[in-house]
Computed example of a mutant assay.
Amino acid sequence: MGTNEVTRIVTDEEKREAKNFNIFDLPDVPTGLPPHLELQRTRVVCKKDSNIHPTAITFSGAYSSMGVDNSVRLENFSEDFKVDVISLTETDMVFDMIGVHAGIANAFRRILLAELPSMAIEKVYVANNTSVIQDEVLAHRLGLIPIAADPRLFEYLSENDQPNEKNTIVFKLHVKCLKGDPRRKVLTSELKWLPNGSELIKESGGSTTTPKTYTSFNHSQDSFPEFAENPIRPTLKDILIAKLGPGQEIELEAHAVKGIGKTHAKWSPVATAWYRMLPEVVLLKEFEGKHAEELVKVCPKKVFDIEDMGQGEVKAFPSFLQMSLLAFE
């Protein structure tokens, strides 16, 4: 007797299903992280003795066995990341970064400190200094004075470049304390911007050469529309530079150029950049009616707010805005 073999033909649809098969698509296979692992991945929990889970798990395959991709992808980061500006003034900015762990927040902090360009005094040409402050110390103090100038309007000055109106800002300081006068303070308000460039003459070996200054400006900087209504100046007018006694004098030129904080701290555009974790307050049970109103009143930090549930009923809930403000107290 012969053996009848049955051959099954696999359809194209079955081939596509087999190619796209994923075990986590099966109904009996759990997906996602258990609550305790999700808490560990997304929260820093404050305990009485110490905080737990302060370090983020950055390995992309840490939860691959559970079907969770822990890698940082640009598409997901763009969707989850959010910035809320809490307050903004000329000197301070407070903002919330939502959707990032502490490592990314710290990276932003380091970028603010070291990677953003600004203008700062790099070279100081001293013509006369009879004060008690040495030339090197005086130059260092001048370098740390913040300059109110948009660095995007200037170019970087390399070793082979000639200082000009596009890469250099020149300030002049000439102050003296006459004999018989009391000691006087030298403040940043006495730094005068020279939009036409340097006025100091370079020393030359021959007397027939044409006098040259330390810069080569082709145009005056105050002719640019960016500086017409907003002249370049020190950010603050009351920073102490030096103190002069009777008969003492300081005459110098200070040249500011573009740089970043990674090169020197004087180019760091922020005095202090820091971050704190955003607190999250969770109610273990619901507070309604009079209990909700009492909870809002007794909380010293005003973290809770009242939500109108309709028909005269109210419920207490943690206010995200108040928790955000609590982080900066």
Results as ranks from 00 to 15, higher is better:
292 A>Y: 00
210 T>I: 10
219 H>R: 10
255 H>Q: 06
186 V>A: 06
214 Y>H: 14
284 L>N: 15
199 E>L: 09
199 E>G: 06
256 A>T: 01
233 R>P: 00
247 G>E: 03
250 I>C: 03
237 K>T: 12
197 G>N: 06
209 T>Y: 07
290 K>I: 15
178 L>W: 09
273 A>L: 06
228 A>W: 07
191 L>V: 02
175 V>H: 02
231 P>V: 11
235 T>Q: 14
264 H>G: 00
289 G>P: 15
180 G>K: 04
296 V>E: 06
280 E>A: 11
277 M>P: 02
246 P>R: 11
253 E>I: 06
198 S>G: 00
183 R>A: 14
251 E>C: 13
276 R>L: 13
285 K>T: 12
240 L>H: 11
225 P>Y: 10
283 L>Y: 01
193 W>R: 00
226 E>M: 03
189 S>H: 09
223 S>P: 00
221 Q>K: 08
205 G>V: 04
183 R>F: 09
215 T>D: 09
214 Y>N: 11
206 G>M: 03
217 F>G: 03
213 T>K: 11
228 A>C: 10
230 N>A: 14
185 K>L: 13
238 D>R: 08
284 L>M: 13
180 G>D: 12
263 T>R: 06
283 L>C: 07
209 T>Q: 09
232 I>E: 01
178 L>T: 05
248 Q>C: 13
198 S>E: 00
193 W>H: 04
248 Q>I: 03
204 S>T: 13
273 A>W: 06
180 G>L: 10
287 F>V: 02
270 V>F: 14
246 P>A: 14
286 E>Y: 12
265 A>N: 05
210 T>D: 08
263 T>H: 09
284 L>I: 13
182 P>A: 14
244 L>N: 06
196 N>V: 04
268 S>W: 01
212 K>H: 05
276 R>C: 14
185 K>E: 15
281 V>I: 15
243 K>I: 15
256 A>E: 02
295 L>W: 05
186 V>D: 02
205 G>M: 08
188 T>G: 09
207 S>C: 05
226 E>S: 12
233 R>C: 08
287 F>C: 07
286 E>I: 14
232 I>T: 03
279 P>E: 12
271 A>V: 12
186 V>T: 12
229 E>I: 12
226 E>V: 00
234 P>W: 02
294 E>D: 15
219 H>D: 07
209 T>R: 06
249 E>F: 05
283 L>H: 01
258 K>R: 13
219 H>E: 10
291 H>G: 13
289 G>D: 08
214 Y>M: 02
283 L>N: 06
262 K>R: 11
260 I>V: 14
270 V>E: 02
254 A>K: 00
260 I>S: 07
258 K>T: 02
261 G>S: 04
177 C>I: 04
227 F>M: 05
186 V>M: 03
222 D>Y: 01
211 P>Y: 01
247 G>F: 09
280 E>Y: 11
272 T>L: 11
282 V>E: 10
229 E>W: 09
175 V>A: 14
176 K>W: 12
248 Q>L: 12
226 E>L: 01
236 L>Y: 15
230 N>I: 03
224 F>L: 11
267 W>Q: 06
188 T>K: 10
